[in-house]
Simulated scan of single mutants.
Amino acid sequence: MPFIGLGLHVVVAIFFAVHAMKTGRNLYWLIILFSFPLLGSIVYFLVEYLPHSRLNRGINKAAGAAMKLLDPEREYREASAAYDLTPTAQNKIRLAKAALERGNAQEAVRHYDDALTGPFASDPELLFGLGRSLLAEGSAAAAVRACDVVARLSATHPDYRRDETALLAARAFAGAGRRDEAARAFEHALGTYNNVETRARYIAWLAQQGDTARASTLMEDLQKAARHWSSHARDINREWIALAQGSLKA
Rank of each mutant, 00 (worst) to 15 (best):
V10W: 13
Y49K: 02
A166Y: 09
H9G: 11
Y112M: 08
D71F: 05
N56A: 14
K249A: 15
K97C: 00
G131H: 06
A189T: 09
F3H: 14
E187W: 06
A172E: 12
A176M: 11
G103V: 01
I241K: 09
A244L: 03
I14H: 03
T117N: 06
G40L: 12
G7K: 10
A82L: 10
R227E: 15
N195K: 02
K68Y: 04
A115E: 05
E187L: 14
D71L: 04
L222S: 11
H188K: 15
T212R: 14
S154C: 00
E78F: 03
L130R: 13
A170M: 10
T165Q: 11
A225D: 15
R238K: 10
E181N: 05
E125W: 09
G138M: 10
V12G: 08
A62R: 09
R162F: 03
Y193W: 13
R162W: 06
A79P: 02
A204P: 01
K97W: 00
E181F: 00
F15L: 13
S35N: 11
L206T: 02
I241F: 08
H52F: 00
G64F: 01
A143R: 09
R184C: 06
Y28H: 14
L116K: 00
K68F: 04
L6H: 11
G131S: 02
L153M: 03
L85E: 12
G103W: 09
G210F: 01
E220T: 14
R201W: 13
P72H: 13
S231W: 11
M67F: 01
R227Q: 15
G103S: 07
P87L: 02
F128C: 07
R94L: 09
E107S: 08
N56L: 10
A81S: 04
G118Y: 06
A207H: 02
R110D: 13
R178E: 15
A143M: 07
D180W: 01
G58H: 09
F45K: 05
E78Q: 14
S231G: 05
L100C: 04
R77T: 01
A213V: 12
I32S: 13
N194S: 13
S139I: 04
A98L: 01
F36L: 15
T192I: 06
L130W: 02
R74V: 02
P72Q: 10
A155M: 05
M219Y: 11
E48I: 11
V149D: 14
A242W: 04
R110N: 14
A242K: 09
F15M: 05
E125Y: 13
T165H: 08
R145C: 03
P87V: 04
E73Q: 10
A136R: 12
L8D: 05
R178Y: 08
A66H: 03
E197Y: 01
S230N: 06
H232L: 08
K68D: 15
V11N: 01
L95N: 10
I14R: 01
G129H: 08
N26V: 02
I203A: 10
D159L: 15
Y193P: 03
G7Q: 07
M67T: 09
I32N: 07
G138K: 09
S41D: 15
S230G: 13
L55S: 00
R171M: 15
I236R: 14
G103A: 06
Y202M: 15
A155I: 00
Y83Q: 12
A142Y: 14
A143T: 06
A172W: 11
D113Y: 05
F15V: 09
L127I: 04
S80H: 03
F45G: 03
Y193G: 06
S139A: 10
Q209Y: 06
